[in-house]
Amino acid sequence: MAIDTDRTFTPIQIAVLTVSDTRTAENDTSGDILSKRVTDAGHTLAARTIVKDDAVHLAEQFDTWIDDPQIDAIVSTGGTGLTGRDVTPEALTRIEGARDIPGFGELFRWLSFQTIGTSTVQSRACAVVARGTYIFALPGSNGAVKDGWDGILAEQLDSRNRPCNFVELMPRLKER
């Protein structure tokens, strides 16, 4: 990461969504790891919840947070695998105006390959931008959350990162 120390850090408002039929507030370790990394990086944890693996309900939660002016980005964990219950990518396709960020999933799988080898092909990690809000969908394992945050999001959500970052684009995301 190339941090430009002459630039001021701009904290953003990030919501964390855990997608799971089995996790609860007491055992959501991936959500805990992600939330801690968000606040340790200097951002605000604007909201956090757990939603069952259901594309309709997930899309509703994403839409609620997209329309909340106090949320700039959403990071979800879980629901990106290959089983029938893994529906986070499908939920993202239900969001009106969502635009794919293909490089996110590509880079995530490349980073994940360094940790888990070819098993990374089972991940459908992805990202979109919708109506001015970023949504990043990570797998539900603790390792995947660490790979996604530490290897991509920590840099791209830091306004000082050079040569570019997601934060500096935020004022222009709703342009037509």
Rank of each mutant, 00 (worst) to 15 (best):
A91P: 03
F9V: 02
T22Y: 04
A46L: 00
G140T: 06
L153E: 04
D86A: 14
I71V: 14
A154D: 05
R109W: 15
G42T: 01
K146F: 00
T24Q: 06
P69E: 14
D68G: 06
T10L: 01
A127Q: 07
F166G: 08
A154R: 11
L45C: 05
F9G: 06
T120N: 09
E106H: 10
D54M: 01
S123V: 09
T8L: 11
R94Y: 12
V145E: 11
A2V: 03
F166R: 04
A144I: 08
T120Q: 13
M170N: 03
R85V: 09
L138G: 02
F104R: 02
V56H: 09
L173K: 08
L173I: 14
V16W: 09
G148Q: 04
P102Y: 06
Q114N: 13
D72S: 12
R172H: 15
D158N: 15
I12T: 07
D63C: 06
A15V: 01
V129D: 06
I50D: 10
D54Q: 01
A130M: 13
G97Q: 14
S76R: 08
T118R: 07
L169P: 00
G42D: 05
R85G: 13
G151C: 04
V56N: 12
D67P: 03
V56W: 01
I116N: 03
S30H: 12
G103T: 12
I33V: 15
G117D: 08
P139L: 04
H43D: 11
V128P: 01
D86N: 08
L45I: 02
A73M: 08
S159E: 04
M1Q: 04
T18H: 06
D32W: 11
F108E: 03
M1C: 05
D32R: 12
L153N: 02
S35M: 03
N27W: 08
S20K: 00
R162I: 04
V51N: 05
I3P: 02
R172K: 13
D6V: 02
N161L: 11
E155P: 00
G97N: 09
F9C: 04
L17P: 11
R160E: 07
F9Q: 14
G84Y: 01
N142T: 14
I101C: 14
T88Y: 03
G79H: 09
N142P: 12
E168Q: 10
M1P: 05
V19A: 06
L107A: 10
V51Y: 00
C126A: 13
L153G: 03
D53A: 10
D150Y: 09
F136C: 12
A144S: 11
A144F: 05
V51D: 04
I95F: 07
V75A: 02
